[in-house]
């Protein structure tokens, strides 16, 4: 294989994303997204679609903006002071940054799982029923218990915790905590689930369980996952997007990205030249 010279690894100014970034049946469409932290620009002119019920993985070296990009999809960036988003992000044709849009409703529709498991310091039951309770999704205790069991089953945690639902969620192991967070997210039946490096704090066995879970969930949910591990992207995703220094370099079906990358930078990254 020919080694690309250092020169070719530099990005040209007017870079255009290569590969298949657009979809015929999009769940979410992003066009010309720029994100700024105060004066510093973190994302440069990214356009991409997320297809219904697909798992799309976002990979790239540290600080490439993949997590920032993910957080613009449910407006979690609103909580960061000085963060500004330009461009259009639509879900089912509805602009997510429209002034009259309620973020509460948006975040109920686009759930999120974080890098470090962050169960609330409450019981397992309260963790999962938190969302349904605040959104008023259950009228009776029975409904609530039904949601609880369904969500925990979907997250593959039910068998492990059904006897200790009233014990604190913080007492679970790391992998269990992360699955609890997934159960918590799916309890409000979102349409899209965003996962921000969900396995980076977990050991390999727990990681395998989560990956299995993602595959199952993809039947019902649209999933966007940011990951540091190329193997993980290769294992769980249908499509892979490669980010570099805030720019979207390449989007292609996962198999193609890992076997025949179209862009030199992608190739350099997956062959381990940097990361």
């Amino acid at each position: 294989m020919k080694l690309a010279s250092e020169q070719t690894l530099e990005l040209d100014e007017g870079h255009v994303t290569v590969g298949q970034s657009f979809s015929d049946d999009p769940k979410m469409t992003m066009r010309n997204i720029n994100v700024f932290y105060a004066e510093k620009q973190a994302i440069y002119d990214v356009s991409i679609d997320i297809t219904k019920n697909e798992v799309i993985a976002m990979i790239g070296p540290s600080g490439c903006g993949k997590s920032t990009f993910l957080r613009t999809l449910n407006r979690m960036n609103d909580t960061v002071d000085g963060c500004r988003v330009e461009g259009d992000i639509c879900m089912d044709g509805e602009n997510l940054y429209a002034p009259n849009l309620d973020v509460v409703e948006l975040r109920a529709r686009v759930g999120m799982v974080f890098q470090k498991p962050n169960p609330f310091p409450k019981s397992i039951r309260d963790n999962v029923t938190y969302g349904p309770k605040i959104h008023g999704l259950a009228d009776t205790r029975v409904d609530l218990d039904e949601i609880l069991e369904k969500s925990l089953r979907k997250a593959g945690l039910w068998e492990e915790v059904k006897d200790r639902l009233d014990q604190p969620g913080t007492g679970l192991s790391g992998g269990q905590q992360q699955r609890l967070c997934i159960a918590r997210a799916i309890a409000v039946s979102p349409e899209v689930i965003l996962m921000d490096e969900p396995c980076s704090a977990l050991d390999p066995i727990a990681t395998a369980k989560i990956e299995e879970l993602i595959e199952e969930l993809s039947q019902n949910f649209t999933i966007a996952i940011v990951t540091h591990s190329m193997q993980q992207a290769a294992r769980v995703s249908h499509r892979t997007a490669y980010f570099h220094l805030g720019k979207l370099i390449e989007v292609n079906p996962t198999e193609q990205v890992f076997t025949m990358p179209q862009h030199q930078l992608t190739e350099a990254y997956i062959t381990g030249r940097f990361g």
Binding site: D102, V104, E105, A108, R109, I134, H135, G136, L137, V188, S189, E191
Partner: peptide, 19 residues
């Protein structure tokens, strides 16, 4: 069906919660 049901419930609660 479940999802649109959920969504309408959420929308229903929004005014009260924002207040």
């Amino acid at each position: 069906n479940n999802r649109s049901d959920t969504l309408s419930k959420i929308q229903h609660s929004l005014t009260r919660r924002n207040r």
